[in-house]
Nucleic acid binder design. Structure first.
Lengths: 159, 159
DNA sequence: GACATATATTTGCCTTGACAAATATCTTTC
DNA sequence: GAAAGATATTTGTCAAGGCAAATATATGTC
């Protein structure tokens, strides 16, 4: 019965039940997220992947507004407010009023925030990222990133 | 100030603020999901990406249990129950008792389910997948999938 | 065969993120 | 400079998914 429902595929291509790009992205991403969170947890650091990204970006960008940060990590503004609440409660960042624009916040890592990034979070991220790509040569790793960037731009520009 | 906080990166590597693998996967995946959902919506088909995957898998696998289906699309069992509720309500699939095991359900696409997959959902998925990979040659597309599969297996086996 | 253990499905609870409305504050236009 | 429109943040609401408990049924052990 399977022979009938499965239309003859050109036998040179990939098997018809091989994971497609969307499915694969789904799986690789969630596996990677899980692993990074587990790695941080094993170091006694209780951070979600989203919070990991926020701290990373905050560290890269220095003082930024919530909106800029939200754009940088592709997170909804409302969700960002709540994540900032949590990260502020944990003592990793600080909201201060913006000098020129009273609507805007200036968000910055605290000392504890910088420390947690340098000593733990970035290390966990690096370790997992390296482990994930361990079966690829350096050239292949670069190619993978390049392909993904090209796919991203194609999806955004065209469609 | 930025010059200080940003440690000198080997200038041959990628710029230190270039998106990393995790971030890129995040972005590409969500863009792809959004685009497929938009494509289906434009065809008058109201399906989430998760539901798209469930129908796709159900179509590939024929009659399956909820647990098998859940594993196939990497979805929690509880979440699967609720998705099946919705898809059953929409008339795209059917739950019947399993002949040998009274704990288990046998899940199968209805005629409407098969039709919606063949005529609309799979077409939308194909269109978006192709568009996403349009800037890659066929060889590069195959390589991208291969890299992602290798990354996935590395993450799963090792760590 | 009774009992302990394992598995399938469902349900409740909780957290997260998207979306929209509310509020406060710029910015532009006249 | 007042009104209209744009932008930043917060809050409410909702749907989705993960986890754990509940229930029903199989399976393995003695």
């Amino acid at each position: 019965m399977n022979d009938i429902t499965r239309p003859a595929t050109p036998s040179l291509g990939r098997p018809s039940d091989a994971p497609t790009l969307g499915m694969l992205l789904n799986m690789v991403r969630s596996e990677m997220v899980r692993t990074i969170e587990a790695e941080m947890s094993s170091q006694g650091l209780d951070l979600s992947f989203t919070q990991y990204l926020i701290i990373k970006k905050a560290q890269q960008l220095g003082a930024v507004s919530a909106t800029e940060l939200a754009r940088a990590v592709e997170l909804d503004g409302g969700a960002m407010t709540r994540q900032l609440d949590q990260l502020e409660r944990k003592g990793f960042l600080r909201r201060s009023p913006h000098a020129q624009d009273r609507r805007t916040l200036s968000i910055e890592l605290t000392e504890a925030g910088h420390a947690v990034w340098q000593n733990t979070a970035s290390v966990c991220g690096q370790r997992v990222t390296n482990a994930a790509q361990a079966s690829l040569s350096h050239a292949e790793q670069a190619q993978l990133l390049d392909y993904l960037e090209r796919v991203l731009h194609t999806l955004r520009d065209k469609t």
